[in-house]
Design a protein around this nucleic acid. Structure first.
Lengths: 196, 196
DNA sequence: CGGAAACGGAACGTACCGTGTCGTGTCGTT
DNA sequence: AACGACACGACACGGTACGTTCCGTTTCCG
């Protein structure tokens, strides 16, 4: 089933109700117990309507998650790269710690390995743009001399986000502010220190 | 349902057939399409027998995965902490890149968020012991003066494994040896460099 | 105003779930 | 050596969610 029949006659009312119900049910029952049938019933919508516009439960929740995430963890530029990275990572960690976003994102991640299209969509719509933003912020710090010219910025981003994903998928307790600060410090140090 | 009736009369033959079929089916169809019914049929075993010893599909594959992983990524001590970490991380990355282990582990991770017991089991049986091993190896390097005394070793482990998990769950291309070497270098640098 | 298309509702067959029952075989116990 | 307990394979069961189809209604574009 292909995602969009691309029509202007689509009911915005139904779309909103579906996305809202998907997130609500994710909070109430957890991602694993959210079903298309339950979403349809809760949203007062026909199953056919959901299947017409989304290929799967994961796609519905990805759209809902993306919509809700957009302005949750902005990349600000106060001139202090350390402070900006700390607040950015803290924002992401905090968002993942509250329902429905934490469980929803975990559920979405869990679908990626048997849903190629969803994986591509997540990377293109969510991950890659944000990684680019992060690299942009690091480059700006580079211009201001806070980071050496030759630093491996993409690696730095993975070293920052890696532990966040690591703890999230393994369901380890989320990092507190102090741990995040230590993490950011280490990443920045690793960029500044000479090779050994 | 509780996992083991703890009996000595258990059929080792059935157990092996079940674990083997679980991994085989994971290779052939992918984790999402592996079902208890399919495992039972493939292994020539009654469903009841599977449910008697394992609470879920995830638990079966966790046992199969653990059995197969044990000696895949050992912690050796050649005296060179950089070389040892590189080979260890490379081993983990390589293992995750081949079926059925990559898909199986991804599937297991995907179950964690709606299966508290499986999450606990994975951490206790797989993750925590290996983290302790890694910390032990780092501490040994500390004793040899390759790492400063006050270094945050648990954080170092998360900085090493974080990017591996990050790429695995997002299904980004796996790291090559050079990237892994760069990652290890950065982590070691971050431990050695002074705070800023 | 006419028709195309999205809509809600209901029903369908299929797949897999987790459980129950039954007869068989095998292994500890005495 | 005989018993008895228990794991085993097999099969059947009700339940849930899947993804699809049909129908009659509503909505909006032209």
């Amino acid at each position: 089933m292909i995602t969009p029949p691309s029509s202007v006659r689509r009911s915005e009312r139904s779309r909103r109700a579906i996305l809202r119900s998907a997130l609500d049910l994710c909070t109430e029952r957890g991602y694993g117990h959210v079903t298309i049938e339950a979403i349809a019933a809760d949203a007062g919508v026909s199953k056919k309507t959901i299947y017409r516009w989304w290929p799967s439960k994961g796609a519905v929740l990805l759209e809902a998650f993306t919509d809700a995430l957009i302005d949750a963890t902005p990349f600000v530029d106060t001139g202090d790269i350390g402070a900006d990275l700390r607040s950015h990572v803290a924002g992401a960690v905090k968002l993942l710690s509250v329902p429905p976003f934490g469980p929803a994102y975990a559920g979405i991640l869990s679908e990626l390995h048997h849903d190629d299209r969803l994986a591509q969509q997540l990377r293109e719509q969510l991950v890659d743009p944000r990684v680019e933003e992060a690299i942009g912020r690091l480059r700006s710090a580079q211009d201001q001399g806070q980071i050496p010219p030759g630093a491996d910025l993409p690696l730095a981003v993975e070293m920052l986000y890696g532990p966040v994903y690591y703890r999230h998928v393994l369901r380890k307790p989320v990092q507190d502010e102090e741990t995040i600060a230590t993490l950011v410090d280490h990443v920045l140090r690793s960029l500044r220190a000479p090779g050994y």
